[in-house]
Amino acid sequence: MKNRMKTSEKETPPLVRIRDLKTWFPVKRGLFSRTKDYVRAVDGITLAIYPGETVGLVGESGCGKTTLGRTLLGLESAHSGEMFFDGIALHAIRAKAMTPLRQRIQVIFQDPLSSLNSRMTIMDIVTEGLVRFKKISTSKADHARRLLDEVGLPPDAMHRFPHEFSGGQRQRINIARAISLRPEFIVCDEAVSALDVSVQAQVLNLLMTLQERHQLSYLFISHDLSVVSNIADRIAVMYLGRIVESGTTADIIGNPLHPYTKALISAVPVPGNNTGNNTGRRMRLQGEIPSASAPPAGCRFHPRCPEATAVCREKPPERTVTEGREIWCHLYGASDG
């Protein structure tokens, strides 16, 4: 059952390639609403996602992870930079040319209820895309039955409405809709964050099963490092609009290098771990994430970094590549990159 494509770099071209992507939101002030400044929500992201793999994108609220996902989906327009999906330049595409791509790129949002139309039956919801792209071969009910079966819902669910279901079931409906057009790539934006633990595990397992069955690629966006580590092949850690470290799940969790990644892992309460409980103290970050409209000079993490030096305050770190891991930190010299 473990015949997932183990794609390593360079063998196959990436399905999604992002280069120096910036999504800035203008801040307008004054008499003629002139753009005074920008909120630099995504500020120079480079990332590749290979066919069949899950890339986990983690970071705290306000770090820009959701904006990155939305930019990829065309829900926000990029300020500069490039995005390619299967070689197609998404950053230069017209709205009309994007339509066929919508079949290939799908999304699952955090709130399973608000992303479902409360006046549509489940059958209409899960087959809406198929109808729109004229892909109904037999009947809507047939397709709905098949899709509901794939996500583990009974066929009689199709005649009911979203409010009749629990959170976990609603997220299954969202998943059924997302896979209805046989996409290659799904952006999962906090897809299990609103669910209770016992149901969260079910939905995560379902996402993994579907991925194996249909060779899906996921960009799995979450604030929860524990959740991400269970589904991601690779993890990218984001801080204030930029990626600070990315690598395989084994590297990032097992041997984090960037001080922010270390702090993030250290902050996760781990049941059964006696080093961090009641009495002991772990690595703690001081302060909070600064505003994305006025990011600190130099390395953006330096005001909170326990290991910051003079150079961190002045110069933004360059990318360093070591054994498949990318890291942006002055501690790891850019010379051997």
């Binding site: 016992s198 993994m208 524990s226």
Partner: peptide, 26 residues
């Protein structure tokens, strides 16, 4: 016991979780 097993823990490798089947009853 089921709840403790279902919690996603920090892990270095991807894998299925032990879930509790079914839904919380209304």
């Amino acid at each position: 016991a089921g709840l403790l097993k279902a919690i996603p823990k920090l892990t270095t490798s991807r894998g299925k979780l032990k879930d509790i089947p079914g839904q919380v009853p209304s």
